[in-house]
Computed example of a mutant assay.
Amino acid sequence: MTAIKARLQEIGAAGIVVTHELEFFGDLSDGTIDLARHLTRPLPATTTARARERSTQEIIPMVSSLNTQKSPPGRAVPLAVDRLSVRTEGGRALVVDVSFRLGAGSCIGLVGPSGAGKTTVLRALLGQHRDSSGQVLVGECRLPLHYSARTTAEKRLFEYVPQSVRLHLNPALSIGYLIARRLRQADRVDNANEAVKVLDSISLPADYLLKRVSELSGGECQRLGIALAIAARPRILLLDEVTASLDPANSAFVVELLRKLRDERSVSMLFVSHQPDMVARLADDVIEMRSGHVLSSGISVDLGSLPAAMSSRPAALEQAHSVARSYP
């Protein structure tokens, strides 16, 4: 931002930044406008924290409207990863000797700076890296390390939700079509009733079946990505920065949605994130990575004990403390 501001001054231009980081940009900009509040005047930087707190409190109660009928827990399928390593075709190490255990219905937060190897671990579990080694076991079953060698049942053990679901979906397709296709792929009934149940699981109304991807907001797209993943009934969800592009209110809603799915359906989760408040809210344990190595694991999911690497500024962690304390 410092470089951008210097460039703007150099060429005599003005700049408009669209962001959810109101606290951060409030210190760098000449004024902020919170469109969620329909404001037409600059929002003082000192009020942005309170505005975010209020918007979070407004959306959290929406979770209570979700279907509370519990699905019967399936057979426990813990994940065991032993000495997982990944290299590029040129031989450069991306991930080195990563080992951890993930129990049924539990969540591990994968944290660390960009380039630490967090997403590489998720892709390796999906079988997307040819030059990988180590062991991946689900229950008593040792999975082939490459996707093409896995059976249909083994492929369905994992479902991946990316940071920006919108980039992975055809904007012209309808929500109803996408859900029906996913249900068929999972050998499930793909009638309208089942599709409505899928939407209900993410608190979206039935008329969204007629909407196209291009008509959804960012938060709705992320919830759709989770719905499509859950529709396949996986045992393990791989969540790659799924709240990074969302405002605090939608981030809180998505995390509460994931908590509900985890608790009611005994779905295990790996949650990659740079947001300490989201990790503390969802994860049971935390693994810290850096430069492809595990630095520490089993960290208590207390905001005060999360790795400092999760925040580039001390104020950001204190800000996370403040927001977390406002949650019910």
Rank of each mutant, 00 (worst) to 15 (best):
1 M>I: 07
2 T>H: 14
13 A>K: 12
14 A>H: 13
14 A>R: 15
19 T>L: 01
21 E>I: 00
28 L>T: 01
34 D>G: 03
37 R>L: 13
40 T>I: 09
40 T>C: 02
51 A>M: 11
55 S>V: 10
57 Q>F: 04
59 I>E: 05
61 P>H: 00
65 S>Q: 14
71 S>E: 06
75 R>L: 09
80 A>R: 15
90 G>P: 00
94 L>C: 04
94 L>T: 04
97 D>G: 09
110 L>A: 09
119 T>Q: 08
119 T>H: 04
120 T>V: 11
120 T>A: 04
124 A>K: 13
130 R>Y: 14
131 D>S: 12
133 S>Q: 10
138 V>E: 02
140 E>W: 01
141 C>K: 10
144 P>N: 04
154 E>F: 02
160 Y>C: 13
162 P>H: 14
163 Q>T: 13
163 Q>F: 02
169 L>D: 05
172 A>G: 01
175 I>Y: 02
180 A>W: 10
182 R>I: 07
185 Q>W: 14
190 D>Y: 07
190 D>S: 14
191 N>D: 15
193 N>A: 14
203 S>N: 14
204 L>R: 13
209 L>W: 13
211 K>F: 09
212 R>L: 01
213 V>Y: 07
220 E>N: 09
227 A>Y: 06
236 I>Q: 12
236 I>W: 04
236 I>C: 08
238 L>N: 08
243 T>D: 03
248 P>E: 08
249 A>D: 03
252 A>D: 03
252 A>P: 01
255 V>W: 00
256 E>W: 02
257 L>H: 11
257 L>N: 02
259 R>W: 11
263 D>Y: 08
264 E>A: 04
265 R>V: 05
268 S>C: 06
270 L>P: 03
271 F>S: 02
275 Q>W: 00
277 D>K: 11
282 L>V: 03
283 A>P: 10
283 A>Q: 10
296 S>Q: 13
309 A>H: 12
317 L>H: 15
318 E>C: 05
318 E>Q: 10
320 A>K: 05
327 Y>Q: 03
